[in-house]
Amino acid sequence: MRTPTTFWAEIVLPAIRAKVARILSSEGFSQVRIAKELGITQAMVSKYLSKYKPPEILEDIEGKIEAIAVSIAEMIKSDIEREEIIKTIERSFFKLLGDEKFCKAYEKYSGIPGKVCMELAIESGKKEVIEDLSRALEIILRDEKFAELIPEIRSNFAYSLPNPRDTNDVAAIPGRITVIKGKPYAMPPEFGVSKHTARLLVKVSKHNKDIRSVLNIRFGKDVEDAIKKAGLRVAYLPRELSSIEEIEDRIAEMFNGNEFDVVIDPGRHGVEPCVYIFGRNPMDVIVKLKKIEENL
């Protein structure tokens, strides 16, 4: 069966190897050394340099293949560890899975609808999001200082897929982060378990696609002073907003052409004051959280 991984291994990867071989050969690398670097035979290197022509179905992704090959060749010339080169190659595959032109080329190769690639890319992306959010959550759960920053409404920590379409594309903490026996406690992150923070990231992404993670903590004069001492970029919500949806919309609008580390909601009748820490990913949020804690 012709799967996307088969397409990558049989068609795309040889095209990348051929381009890398030609780049390295033009830089004075011998065929023996190229073979060693690429993990193939010298005979295959010779074939890549003299006879190989990429299949026509790769025509639309030729530029992407060229870019990957140039990166790999540069890493080889710079004596980057082989493990890092392998990671780069594998990341390139997962990135291409979500590329429309790659999926169309796969469809021509296999006769199977290219949407299969897109679906696999989403599943792969979800796994990565859960892993990254789980690692950051572990840091919070070992941080006893964080227990003092959990508001009455409790904290949530969310991380979205790139360009989230709806709340199902956002992972967060079921039941939020709470305090048990003086220590932070939380269930493992899942997709589709948050309303407010998930909607917030979906709305923010429409104005700034780089912002994909958010954590809320309590507000107070001590926290506000710590944020300022930490030198974080901060914005304030007005008090006249009356609903959660209005709060989300106003925060999202703030990111139109701007990037803030922290947004402070001073609260209003029936709504607890809150601090939102934003970042490109969960570890980015953790770094900002630690800066606040250090200045408390």
Rank of each mutant, 00 (worst) to 15 (best):
A21C: 03
R22H: 01
R22G: 00
I23D: 06
I23N: 07
S25N: 07
S26T: 02
S30G: 10
S30T: 11
Q31G: 15
R33M: 11
K36P: 12
K36C: 05
K36Q: 15
L38Y: 08
G39S: 12
G39I: 03
A43K: 15
A43Q: 15
M44D: 12
L49G: 10
L49N: 10
S50Y: 10
K51Q: 15
K51F: 13
K51C: 14
P54L: 07
P55I: 01
P55H: 06
E56V: 00
E56F: 00
L58H: 09
E59I: 02
E59P: 00
E59H: 10
D60E: 14
D60H: 11
I61F: 07
I61H: 09
E62C: 00
E62R: 07
G63C: 06
G63I: 06
G63T: 04
G63S: 12
E66N: 00
I68V: 13
V70R: 02
V70E: 01
V70N: 04
S71P: 05
S71A: 08
A73N: 01
E74W: 07
M75F: 01
I76E: 02
K77F: 02
K77N: 06
I80L: 10
R82N: 13
I85T: 05
I86P: 07
T88G: 13
T88L: 08
T88A: 09
I89Y: 06
I89E: 02
R91H: 09
F94H: 06
K95L: 11
L96V: 04
L96G: 04
F102E: 03
C103T: 05
C103L: 09
K104I: 01
A105P: 08
A105T: 03
Y106T: 07
E107K: 11
K108P: 01
K108E: 11
Y109A: 00
G111E: 13
G111Q: 12
G114Y: 12
K115S: 05
K115M: 02
V116C: 08
C117R: 11
E119I: 14
L120W: 09
A121E: 10
E123M: 13
K126Y: 12
E128G: 08
E128M: 11
V129R: 02
E131Q: 14
E131H: 14
E131N: 14
L133C: 09
I140W: 05
I140G: 03
I140E: 03
L141D: 03
L141W: 05
R142G: 09
R142V: 05
R142W: 08
R142I: 05
F146I: 08
E148G: 03
